[in-house]
């Protein structure tokens, strides 16, 4: 594999992780527009632990995911008091605040950026992504995923059916943030450089769009969305400006033509549907 292809695969892996981080809370009906903030927490935590505390790469990245999860868990309780559009905007504001804090944090280089000494190769990034993807796929076959879908469809009914709605919501939010933190940690240690400006509004926006385009009803949706929009512009060999313009145009057209995303529940495999019908 050429270096170019490897580099592309790493970008794809990081985008898939980001997409999962958005997908998990979204499957419970929470649109997280501040996912880049959690990526920043993971990236800076992993970088700092590796640089200053001498932690190994694995421990540092895991701690990055953990740190993002901790932040998410701490803010989840107040933030999940808001619903719908207010939640989306609260996460948006949170993402902005987190990025702005890192932009002013002197111990990690503030606006100048923060070089990272620990390094991981592309194989580690890809393997971690595969692991996370397997975990999310596994999770999608459990009761947990069913409960999240129920909450997304109607939180009141889910509550009446005895589901611990609040706890499930916090769990989905925290898990999503943990994955975002993990992807941030991988990013920091693979590229050996973190800069707060990278984790801006637009990163959150693009990540959310991957998921919405791929489809939010199936766990394959985020993978497809991220893959589609990492690889298609490469194939078109477009310049950076045109790449995003084409991406945006496709977003608009797809949303008008196929509002539920590329991959919807209707595309489920035929034998799965038959099995569902046979059960009384």
């Amino acid at each position: 594999m050429t270096a170019y292809q490897t580099g592309l695969l790493v970008i794809l892996a990081l985008n898939v992780l980001g997409a999962f981080a958005v997908y998990l809370p979204l499957s419970a009906g929470q649109l997280n527009l501040g996912i880049a903030g959690f990526m920043a927490v993971g990236a800076y935590a992993a970088a700092w632990l590796g640089n200053e505390q001498g932690w190994g790469a694995t421990a540092a990245i895991a701690a990055g995911g953990g740190a993002a999860a901790l932040v998410a868990c701490a803010v989840a309780v107040p933030i999940l008091r808001t619903h719908g559009i207010y939640l989306a905007l609260a996460t948006f504001a949170l993402g902005q605040v987190i990025t702005a804090v890192f932009l002013n944090l002197e111990p990690v280089g503030a606006a100048a950026g923060y070089p990272v000494t620990e390094h991981i190769g592309p194989a580690a990034v890809l393997l971690t992504t595969l692991g996370v993807a397997a975990l999310v796929l596994l999770l999608s076959c459990t009761r947990f995923a069913l409960c999240l879908t129920a909450i997304r469809s109607d939180a009141v009914v889910a509550d009446l059916m005895g589901m611990p709605v609040r706890a499930l919501k916090v769990a989905a939010f925290t898990l999503g943030a943990a994955i975002a933190g993990l992807s941030g940690g991988l990013y920091a240690l693979h590229y050996n450089y973190v800069e707060a400006q990278h984790f801006g509004v637009m990163l959150s926006t693009y990540t959310v769009l991957y998921v919405l385009l791929g489809g939010t009803r199936s766990v394959w949706g985020p993978i497809l969305g991220a893959a589609f929009f990492t690889l298609i512009p490469e194939l078109l060999r477009a310049s950076a400006g045109w790449r995003y313009a084409i991406f945006a145009l496709l977003v608009i057209l797809f949303m008008a033509w196929r509002p539920a995303g590329l991959l919807t529940g209707g595309l489920r495999l035929p034998w799965r549907r038959r099995a569902a019908e046979e059960t009384p």
Binding site: A88, A248, I252, A260
Partner: peptide, 23 residues
């Protein structure tokens, strides 16, 4: 087109316009 769709769809589409215009 998205008045009857999932609520986050028009939001995504409008964000698409923002990205398109900027670029």
């Amino acid at each position: 087109p998205s008045r009857d769709a999932d609520p986050e769809v028009p939001l995504a589409s409008a964000l698409g316009f923002l990205i398109l215009l900027e670029n």
